[in-house]
Design a binder for these strands. Structure first.
Length: 408
RNA sequence: GGCGGGGUUCCCGAGCGGUCAAAGGGGUCGCGCUGUAAACGCGAUGGCUCAGCCUUCGCAGGUUCGAAUCCUGCCCCCGCCA
């Protein structure tokens, strides 16, 4: 039986799998050692931003890591940044975030918490959820004490601040304050470890300084890679509209995964699908012989199976093949009823109503050969059709929008 | 307090009296192709009762035959100096 020291180091190594940074050197092992010695759980913190409530695969990377800590017996402390959401953290971006109303924040926080439950263990012993308005709504004297812990130069070291300063761009006081507030969260919850994306590195490290200033042991920090969005370039985020949400329907998740560039396949697999902690018994990863298409199909299946089930994954794949490979209509199609008083069915109006586009857009779609009625593609200018020709037919708009038409 | 820069269509960003619904890029959409909603190529991208009409270039007024482009006032944003 290995002694406690070795075991802690091994655990730390395992938990650090896929992490970009685990700081300070040996810090996590020390924390694990301490937990063993004191026979307690580590408190592993993650701050979440309730401005973007829907959890996507990018969040899932960090949440999966948290799940590993839970499975190792530790306690995850999720901090809903309901108070900091009023401040707006600009990490990795160049413009200020909009502020949200309290009602919006509450709704978003609830949504996030519910969705996180898909990945995290929600056993109260393993998961604690807090809101930072609990402690950040502080007296001015306390705020001043917090401000006293840090210098302007320290904050301006942060990469994005430094760049913006050099470029003569605006940096608001609120933004500068944000890292301090986040750091104070660590103090308030006695964090032993804090996780985040690599864009959080500065804030996580500053949390250590804040804790020290308050006479607390400093947290270990771990950063996880930022998952790229479906276009394969920029970080996955809702505002960039390149996200795959964990609650999206199976066929959407499957399809969006198929839309990622081939180069991103390996990264997606490594961060989302592979065994949480590597073990010797695992089969080798998908061989390089596999074609990108098949590798991506397998990935898409695995992601859906992870978030739903094997059956859902198989069904999603069937549907995808049917619609995108065989170019046929899916089995299940929503119906749209139409009526026509004046003898002709005006398609731009119908398409606009059914798919939420403008009539002008609908006209363009028809004119560009993007609309098919039954099995004939509509010709440019063919905006009105006889009702007999439309009734009972499948209307296909673009590659993946379908309606079965019924005269009503 | 002083000086300077700026607000353009989903985003960035050109335009600076007519040829502007407004260059170019991004994004998005469509088609083609294909191994996929990949890649690549081509095209489209304010609205509508769509060969025409209507409404846009921070807001309000004005000059002009004619303004996103000129003038006046206002609102907002940013930087620098102090």
């Amino acid at each position: 039986m290995p002694n406690a020291t070795d075991a802690a180091a091994e655990d730390a190594a395992r938990l650090s799998h896929n992490a970009v940074d685990s700081l300070p050197q040996g810090g996590l092992a020390d924390k694990l050692r301490l937990a063993r010695a004191e026979d307690r759980q580590l408190r592993v913190k993650l701050g979440i931003d309730p401005t973007a409530p829907d959890i996507h695969l990018g969040h899932a990377v960090v949440l999966r890591k948290l799940r590993e800590f839970q499975d190792a017996g530790h306690r995850v402390v999720l901090i809903v940044g309901d108070y900091t959401a009023r401040v707006g953290d600009p990490s990795g971006r160049t413009t200020l975030r909009p502020m949200l109303s309290e009602a919006e924040i509450d709704a978003n926080a609830a949504t996030f918490q519910r969705q996180a439950g898909r990945i995290l263990d929600d056993d109260p012993q393993r998961l604690e959820v807090r809101r930072n308005s609990e402690w950040l709504d502080m007296r001015t004297t306390e705020l001043l004490q917090l401000l006293g812990t840090t210098t302007a130069a320290q904050l301006l070291e942060r990469d994005d601040f430094a760049k913006r300063l050099a470029a003569g761009e605006a940096i608001s006081m609120l933004e500068l304050l944000y890292p301090l507030l986040q750091g104070y969260d660590s103090v308030a919850v006695d964090a032993d470890v804090e996780l985040g994306g690599t864009d959080q590195k500065f804030n996580l490290l500053l949390g250590r300084d804040i804790q020290r200033a308050y006479g607390q042991p400093e947290q270990a920090i771990m950063t996880m890679p930022i998952l790229v969005g479906t276009e394969g370039r920029r970080k996955m985020s809702k505002s960039l509209a390149n996200q795959i949400g964990v609650t999206e329907p199976p066929e959407e998740i499957y399809g969006k995964t198929m839309a990622i560039p081939d180069e991103a396949i390996e990264e997606y697999r490594r961060l989302l699908v592979d065994q949480l902690t590597p073990s010797e018994e695992l089969p080798p990863p998908a061989s390089a012989e596999t074609s990108p298409r098949d590798a991506k199909r397998a990935l898409a299946r695995d992601v859906v199976a992870w978030l739903y089930s094997d059956q859902d994954a198989a069904a999603a794949e069937r549907r995808f093949d049917r619609v995108h490979v065989d170019h046929e209509a899916p089995e299940e199609i929503d119906e749209a009823s139409f009526s026509c008083e004046d003898g002709q069915l005006h398609l731009p109006g119908l398409i606009a109503d059914e798919f939420g586009v403008s009539r002008s857009e609908a006209r363009r779609l028809i004119d560009q050969g993007g609309v098919t009625l039954g099995d004939s593609q509509l010709a440019p200018g063919e905006h009105d059709v006889a009702p007999e020709r439309a009734d009972g037919q499948v209307l296909k708009v673009g590659r993946r929008r379908f309606r079965r038409l019924r005269r009503g």
